[in-house]
């Protein structure tokens, strides 16, 4: 699904390299100390961060020079995932057509997706009239209608309480089951990784390492991860 070939990103004295492959349909957590470049990696994949060396391939295609909207990617950010001046249905509809000229079938799909995430009847609400959990559901409904091959999440549920976050991760899992998409999830919480992502990319010391099995990684953390987790270095 996603291949990073000899990728190097430089930014004000900071350097991040990656050379890795994420198979189709995989669910991968991205974890590492803060400032190590987790978000930078995700932004490069999404197309927001220019790449200094190397290529990014998705579904066999070279997307290195492509604008963010042209890549087969859905992305959810830490905040501002919805436009506050548009209704829930409009925010979801943007995933189908960025100019919002939807036909009847597309409108039906929007309604269906909102129902799927448990928001029937709230189509006309604007984000300001929704709770934090409901707003996250709208964003997931958009991921659902976009149906893109790769879903990138940059700690999107960090502001929610633990129970709500777990609920959202479960819903995310259902969405991924339906679309068959590949997942990259940036998180600082090992519990998230263990809950949803069988594999993990460790970003530390200027490298984004190839994905390894999550359970094993946390069972026997490498040195770079130990200090981050606060595990004794014995």
């Amino acid at each position: 699904m996603l291949t990073l070939e000899g990728l190097v990103i430089r930014q004000d004295g900071f350097e991040l390299s990656a050379d890795l492959h994420v198979p189709d349909g995989a669910r991968v957590a991205v974890i590492g100390p803060s400032g190590a470049g987790k978000s930078t990696l995700l932004n490069a994949v999404a197309g927001f961060q220019p790449v200094d060396e190397g290529r990014i391939r998705m579904q066999g295609r070279d997307v290195t020079g492509l604008a963010p909207g042209k890549r087969p990617v859905s992305m959810l950010f830490q905040d501002n995932n919805l436009f506050p001046h548009l209704s829930a249905a409009q925010n979801v509809g943007l995933g189908l057509r960025p100019d919002l000229r939807l036909d009847a079938a597309q409108r039906a799909r929007v309604a269906q997706a909102l129902e799927r995430v448990g928001l029937q009847g709230l189509e006309g609400r604007k984000p300001g009239q929704l709770s934090g959990g409901q707003a996250s559901r709208v964003a997931l409904a958009r991921v659902l209608v976009q149906g893109r091959g790769l879903v990138l999440l940059d700690e999107p549920f960090a502001a929610l309480g633990p129970a709500l976050k777990a609920e959202m991760l479960d819903l995310l899992e259902e969405v991924l089951d339906e679309t068959g998409a590949t997942l990259l999830l940036v998180t600082h919480d090992p519990a998230d990784a263990l809950r949803i992502a069988p594999q993990t990319i460790l970003v530390a010391d200027g490298w984004a390492n190839a994905p390894v099995a999550t359970a094993q990684l946390f069972a026997d953390p490498p040195l770079a991860l130990r200090s981050y987790l606060g595990v004794p270095k014995s």
Partner: peptide, 15 residues
């Protein structure tokens, strides 16, 4: 967000 949704040109201005 607009970039990731491919919201460009006239649609970006309008929406």
């Amino acid at each position: 967000l607009a970039d990731s949704l491919g919201l460009t040109g006239w649609a970006r201005l309008q929406l």
